[in-house]
Nucleic acid binder design. Structure first.
Lengths: 242, 242
DNA sequence: TGGCTAATTGAATAGCATTCGGTATTTTCG
DNA sequence: CGAAAATACCGAATGCTATTCAATTAGCCA
């Protein structure tokens, strides 16, 4: 028992220290970027010696990699939470929620997202594992397949194509927003991007419900007009019947 | 006259040397990536001393920047050439040609494209100028506006949104293709991406006066009729009240 | 030609990731 | 418990590179 306890404690201790390094690294990387970050500063903030980092991570690049993977795992959890907490059941409402979340996240963390894909080039062997990225986009995948099961998405629609459109457009839009506005985080710009994304999915991937909906709208508007007309005629009728 | 000639010669010489540095830098950066590239090797390949580079470019990052800008300018010219050489006049055929070109380019030069956006983060002051990127996407913009003028694109379509969808989706797809296939450059994978892009534009931006439009027109006409009817009833009402 | 300026050079500098010999801490076991 | 063994930790020393700069060379003009 003592043995197990001690082993547990030791592992816990090591993991605590590892997490301390990771947290310090994330803060410094966020503040200064990859090249701007000093290993010495990370060590200082983690409360350990400079050399100690290297008994946890092979190199600066691999430390960044660990930070990035934790970052993406966090995103996955958050995205899943967003899906879970969305009260709306319909596919398009949920898609909108996911798009809003993703766009906001990508804008707020543009540097990390860029580094995720740039790291591979700078350091040939270090890449965020495909599995971590797949986990993240799986949130979309599940939503899409469910929408297909519920008949809200046409059967012929191909998942990976829709995924490319969804994440690709949002990431590119995020870059555009960021480039044109700089650090000025104005949320007004994000809404039209999300709206158009949803509209596009309705038009191109939606089952042919769009027409029905429009019919409903037509019906509603006409009904209002007709009611007005009926009132007028009724008035006239009353007048005549006197 | 001699003065001008000499001045010309001197400038030409300097520009030749500048181009030599740029070419050497591009080769080395392509071969080893940004961090892997050695300034000494670039100098050697350009046939000049190490220090000389710094009288042409402030720093390694700024040298890379110049390489990237030349790279994007080259892309712009190529894209324009593709548009000019496409025999088809219709918007969607041209869109397909542009999509094929862009996707192929992005896959072939993924490293440079990533670096374009990653540089900013690594080195806070160095960024590929917006103007260079804008020049490139302007090829799409012109195509789109022309399509709108010709009535192939619906009037309500918003340029920047369509642009985000186009370039965003293609870049994301390129990354997906590259990640799943690695170095194996298989062109088979590219076709469905391009095809779906064109189909999507047809469905969402095309002036296909589909159900929605017709419905709107029907609604408008009926509304007018009803308004006319209302007026008639009003007139009748007035006549009776006399 | 000789003097002036600008361009060029590569050895010296400086900054930083990474290593490594030595020290502290924990674990094992008689 | 106590000491040996194993492990974790440290930070000064190392090595590698971008960058600088004092010295040298080339270009130009009178």
């Amino acid at each position: 028992m003592a043995k197990a306890d001690i082993a547990e404690t030791r592992r816990a201790k090591i993991e605590r220290k590892e997490q301390a390094i990771l947290n310090a690294a994330r803060e410094i990387f966020v503040a200064h970027g990859f090249d701007g970050a000093r290993m010495s500063e990370i060590a200082r903030r983690a409360g350990i010696g400079e050399g100690t980092i290297y008994s946890y991570y092979e190199s600066k690049a691999e430390l960044m990699l660990a930070v990035l993977q934790q970052f993406w795992d966090g995103l996955t959890l958050e995205a899943e939470a967003v899906m879970a907490s969305t009260s709306a059941e319909g596919f398009f409402d949920r898609l909108q929620a996911l798009a809003e979340y993703h766009l906001g996240t990508v804008i707020a963390n543009a540097d990390f997202i860029n580094l995720t894909f740039a790291l591979r080039r700078n350091n040939s062997e270090v890449t965020v594992s495909r599995e971590h990225l797949r986990q993240y986009v799986a949130v979309f995948d599940r939503l899409f397949l469910r929408g297909q099961d519920r008949g809200e998405i046409r059967q012929g629609a191909i998942l990976w194509q829709a995924r490319d459109v969804f994440y690709g457009t949002l990431e590119y839009s995020a870059r555009s927003i960021e480039m044109t506005m700089g650090a000025d985080r104005n949320e007004r710009e994000q809404k039209p991007v999300v709206d158009q994304m949803v509209a596009l999915f309705r038009a191109h991937y939606g089952a042919k419900q769009a027409a029905v909906r429009t019919d409903d709208m037509v019906l509603d508007r006409l009904t209002v007009k007709l009611d007005q007309l009926c009132e007028k005629v009724d008035k006239l009728d009353q007048r005549l019947s006197r």
